[in-house]
């Protein structure tokens, strides 16, 4: 058992979609303690009915993202001592997503937008064909690789003011995914994809404010991906494909 080195005053958003309120808890401060540790401590010791979501605890799965002191982040990779302000932490669910209960959000709309942005790979070959030769240094492959490490945690989506203002907007994660496929030489779905990402709420709704980029825990740059989509779509429009 790690030694208690102080106390943290924690506020947690409790309640269903329409009756949210902040509830105060006092939690022991431990060395190397993450915000997810704090939430788990509250659930195990003070509030057994507290609902929240997590799985891997090591920054692999993307399921524990919450709003901590006003900023969206992975709670499992956020040390309390880094995010605490005057000994206090406020923990809320992710923004721009409907709350189910307490800290758990409904992410179905977020994933539906991946589908709407044609985020699924469209194969052009069969298992009988040989592997497609793709040089790692090709510019298209480099662009795809730059965005491919997204783990769908929805931190960028929660950080995006364009999503907040326009719920129809596909958002940075879905558009980043579309951009990686636009640059995938093996994919055959680009015409439909570029039509999808220029439809209602498409890439043109991005204001390049870079909330997504500054909050992405994987240090990806969705703003750059969206800018790439805008250029690719403009070229497709000139070719009469939109």
């Amino acid at each position: 058992m790690r030694e208690e080195i102080g106390k943290i005053q924690v506020q947690v958003r409790r309640g269903g979609p329409d009756d949210g309120r902040l509830v105060d808890y006092e939690v022991p401060l431990l060395a190397s303690q993450t915000v997810l540790d704090v939430v788990t401590w509250i659930q195990r010791n003070l509030e057994p009915a507290l609902s929240y979501r997590f799985a891997c605890r090591v920054g692999m799965c993307g399921s524990c993202a919450m709003t901590v002191n006003g900023r969206p982040r992975w709670t499992c990779r956020s040390h309390v001592t880094d995010v605490m302000k005057d000994g206090r932490i406020r923990i809320e669910p992710l923004r721009n997503l409907p709350v189910i209960k307490d800290l758990a959000c409904d992410l179905s709309g977020f994933f539906d937008k991946w589908q709407r942005a044609e985020g699924a790979f469209v194969p052009t070959q069969t298992r009988k064909d040989s592997l497609a030769p793709i040089a790692p240094q090709e510019p298209a492959r480099q662009a795809a690789s730059a965005g491919i490490e997204c783990i769908n945690c929805a931190v960028c989506y929660a950080a995006c003011d364009a999503v907040e203002q326009n719920p129809e907007y596909l958002g940075p994660a879905a558009l980043n995914r579309a951009w990686t496929l636009v640059n995938d030489a093996r994919d055959g779905g680009n015409r439909a994809r570029l039509q999808a990402v220029t439809g209602p709420g498409g890439c043109q709704s991005c204001h390049s404010q870079q909330g997504c980029t500054s909050h992405c825990p994987n240090a990806l740059n969705p703003t750059r991906s969206i800018a790439g989509l805008k250029q690719a779509a403009a070229r497709a429009w000139l070719r009469g494909e939109l």
């Binding site: 326009n166 220029t198 439809g199 209602p200 043109q204 709704s205 805008k230 779509a233 403009a234 429009w237």
Partner: peptide, 12 residues
């Protein structure tokens, strides 16, 4: 709200 042709017209 903003269709892609309007977006292009604004950029051009």
């Amino acid at each position: 709200m903003l269709d892609f042709r309007l977006y292009l017209a604004q950029r051009i």
